[in-house]
Design a protein around this nucleic acid. Structure first.
Length: 478
RNA sequence: GCUUCCAUAGCUCAGCCGGUUAGAGCAUCUGACUGUUAAUCAGAGGGUCCUAGGUUCAAGUCCUAGUGGGAGCGCCA
């Protein structure tokens, strides 16, 4: 095949006067003369100038929106105003036709809901080009951050034999036939006959496995798909999502907060530096959206303002107890504006409370720590007061909880006592308890929801629009 | 799972108090134009008004149920 020059490189300059071959998909074909060509290397299109008077009219008719074409031609300084360079076509080859009567995308704004229904084609839009480029850069930045710090990237299993991870409903993994499942004498499903010889599920968290590795490598992280079979119907939950879970030995909750804050700032500023074109586009998109909203709901910060603000300011750290005091004395609580009024210590915080703290009271990312033990998981380290645990949640404006983590309970007796209180059978987790038997040490970690980070950085509002093929209740298309 | 809003052309939407043959912009097709920038201009085609019941002389419009979608809530990352 003829060597292809990427459109991104041509637009950068330095090709003037050269013969090139470019390939891509037609965005628009104007005036029977100008092709806007895109190959995905850049959000910007390359203008191809066609000598229509000397070109086969039947071929010109096949240059339709989203047709794949190959052009040989010369790079010249553009005679038009919209771009610095363009290519005058010498030969045009149609690689793949696109029937304009049937192709659903037009050169105009489409609703995100419509594009979600044609997720296989939405990659060809500017918005999703930008979103998935940023998603890529965030993933790379995460690996880079941990690699530079000497963390070991650990692959935790996707199929798990443990049903005690405690992070929600799980998807069953089985090869047993549904119509005639083998039964034990007691009438229960006999999982001894199943593929793994036991009941298995898709993982809801790689944390417990990451802890095992952390107590050997000191610093590890996982980054992989995670599954929750919850019937969650919101703009920030998915049934299949990607999660980053670092786990660090010889670290306490403060080290944990420092790590999470540094990770978020590093990845966000990586995107600010490396994706200026994509951010500029999404910023414009967002401000157009905001113009549709009533005045009081509009944000006075642009997307890049928000990102820079987040990078340049300390996250607000406070304890659950302090947060309850603020909420108790807040105007909306006094005026009865909260759907769930805050009366006493111990109440679980609702999203209206989190939003008040983050978006109204502090107006910046907030790290909440030391929650009551009753509303947190069994593995979190008990504080000296025996009432709270060393948990930490990071709350972001517009997103809510983006990180959930804790210092882990490293003391065997205390850990087992908590398991008993929460009715978690020890035999399921003997392997986990072994880490507390053989060289236990203080350690901490957290889970970062990757799509929630992508949501924040792109300024998108529905999590289904920041993962290529979203899975949620009632939907597993493509 | 709960609350609430929505469903009319390929897309985005209008359609008044229930009353004639359901409209617009964009897209598509035909023609014109030929340095355009979501090109422009002229014309044409395009409808199971989500589905099923019901009320009524008459339903896109009102009622009930279902389906699908959005937003909010819960579960959480």
């Amino acid at each position: 095949m003829a060597k292809r020059t990427k459109i991104k490189d041509i637009l950068k300059g330095g090709f003037e006067g050269q013969e090139v071959t470019v390939k891509g998909w037609v965005k628009t074909f104007r005036n029977n003369q100008f092709i806007a060509l895109n190959d995905g290397s850049s959000m910007s299109n390359l203008q191809i100038v066609v000598d229509f008077e000397n070109e086969d009219p039947s071929k010109l008719k096949r240059i339709t929106t989203s047709a794949a074409i190959s052009i040989e031609g010369t790079v010249i300084a553009s005679q038009g105003k919209g771009q610095a360079f363009e290519v005058t076509a010498k030969t045009i080859e149609i690689l793949g036709d696109s029937d304009p009567e049937k192709y659903p995308l037009q050169p105009k704004k489409h609703s995100l809901e419509f594009l979600r229904e044609i997720a296989h084609l939405r990659f060809r839009t500017n918005t999703f080009n930008a979103v998935f480029k940023i998603r890529h850069h965030l993933a790379i930045a995460i690996h880079q951050f941990f690699h530079e710090k000497g963390f070991v990237y650990m692959h935790s299993p996707i199929i798990t034999g443990s049903d005690a991870e405690g992070a929600g409903e799980m998807f069953k993994v089985t090869t047993l036939p549904f119509d005639k499942t083998p039964r034990t004498e007691g009438g229960e499903v006999d999982f001894k006959k199943d593929f793994f010889g036991k009941a298995t599920n898709l993982t809801v968290s790689g944390q417990l496995e990451a802890e095992l590795a952390a107590l050997a490598f000191s610093e590890v992280y996982t980054f992989g798909p995670t599954f929750r079979a919850e019937n969650s119907n919101t703009s920030r939950h998915l049934a299949e999502f990607w999660m980053i879970e670092p786990e660090v030995a010889f670290a306490d909750i403060h080290d944990n907060m420092d790590l999470a804050e540094a990770l978020l700032k590093y990845t966000i500023s990586h995107v600010v530096e490396n994706c200026p074109e994509e951010l500029a586009f999404l910023e414009q998109r967002l401000s157009d959206e905001e113009k549709q909203k009533p005045q009081h709901e509009r944000s006075d910060m642009t997307l890049r303002d928000k990102l820079n603000f987040c990078v340049n300011n300390e996250f607000q750290r406070l304890t659950y107890t302090e947060a309850i005091e603020i909420l108790k004395n807040s105007n909306p609580n006094k005026k009865g504006k909260f759907q769930y009024p805050i009366n006493e210590w111990g109440a679980d915080l609702q999203s209206e409370h989190e939003r008040y703290l983050v978006e109204k009271h502090f107006n910046k990312p907030v790290i909440l720590t030391n929650y009551p033990k009753e509303i947190k998981a069994f593995y979190m380290r008990m504080d000296d007061d025996n009432k709270t645990v060393a948990a930490m949640d990071i709350l972001f404006p517009g997103i809510g909880e983006i990180v959930g983590g804790s210092q882990r309970e490293e003391r065997l007796d205390k850990l087992m006592a908590r398991m008993d209180e929460m009715h978690i059978p020890h035999h399921e987790l003997e392997w986990f308890l072994d880490t507390r038997r053989f060289g236990t040490c203080p350690h901490a970690g957290f889970g970062l929801g990757f799509e929630r980070l992508v949501l924040f950085v792109t300024g998108m509002t529905n999590i289904r629009d920041v993962i290529p093929f979203p899975r949620y209740p009632g939907s597993a298309e493509f």
